[in-house]
Amino acid sequence: MRWIVTLLTCCLPIPALAHPHVFIDTGLELIVDETGHLTHVRVTWAYDEFYSLLVLEDMKLDQDADGVLTESEEQFLSGFDAQWVEGYNGDLIVWSGDTQVALSGPQDASATSEGGRIVTSHLRAVEGGAVPASDLRAKAFDETFYIAYEVTRPVTVSGPVSCDITRIEPDIDGQLAQMQAFLLTLDADYDLEENDIPLVGENFATEIFVACPST
């Protein structure tokens, strides 16, 4: 989704350009029990190189700049992105059928680096008891598009049952055309900081479908 930077840079008024953009390659592991019910979701985030550099410099890690963290540095970094404010959904929505699945906050957080990029992982439990995984859907997105998520890392199902995984990619060209048409309607002095920012993040999200047999 790096293409969004070009679009925003070309089309948005100056105040909006002050906002940084973070890009995250995302992976999901859906954990299913022997009855075909979803119990947990493990989320992997791989941050873009520039944001990773900013975090490492701010936390005074990887001082030799070799892109590799020591074990103690990994422990220090773990959980830096798992301090969530109340009500934050972790930029992940999961549905079982038509019902949105309630997920816990991040647990079992870990962090490492790959080629200078920070890669973190956290586990989220299904709250209120496991839910059927016979008709699951999942989307990773930030509705404001401050953060751009791209599901480029593995999406897997772990458990004793065999499940089917399919994915539907967003209509990027169509969504870009709609966004560009909207941006062109704005006045040159339109201030997005004082007005409602269009919530377009979901429009650019990959939709994951999982079907597991229930017993």
Rank of each mutant, 00 (worst) to 15 (best):
V68E: 14
V32K: 03
G27A: 04
A205T: 06
A18I: 15
V126Y: 06
L183F: 12
D81V: 05
A188P: 05
E150T: 03
H37V: 04
D173K: 15
L28F: 10
D191V: 14
Q63V: 08
T215R: 14
E194W: 13
R2G: 08
D81K: 07
P213V: 14
D108Y: 01
T26E: 09
C10P: 09
H37D: 05
T9R: 11
I208W: 05
M179S: 09
Y190I: 10
V85S: 11
Q83M: 06
K60C: 03
W3I: 00
G159L: 07
Q75Y: 13
E169D: 13
L53P: 04
I168G: 14
T6L: 00
F23D: 01
Q100R: 02
S121E: 05
V68Y: 02
V161I: 12
L30V: 10
L38C: 08
C163R: 13
E143H: 00
Q175F: 14
D187Y: 10
E73D: 08
E71T: 07
H122R: 10
A148N: 07
P160Y: 07
C10T: 09
P160A: 09
A82S: 10
D25V: 06
L199Q: 05
L92H: 00
E127T: 13
G87K: 02
D142G: 02
A109F: 06
L69M: 06
F80L: 04
Y47F: 06
L136K: 07
Q75M: 08
T112P: 07
E143W: 00
A82P: 05
A65N: 15
P132D: 03
G159R: 04
I24N: 01
T152L: 15
W95R: 05
L77G: 00
L53S: 11
S162Y: 14
L192M: 10
L38E: 09
S158R: 08
D64V: 12
L38N: 08
G115C: 06
D191P: 15
S52D: 09
G67D: 12
D196W: 10
A65E: 15
N89R: 00
E114K: 08
F182C: 07
D142M: 03
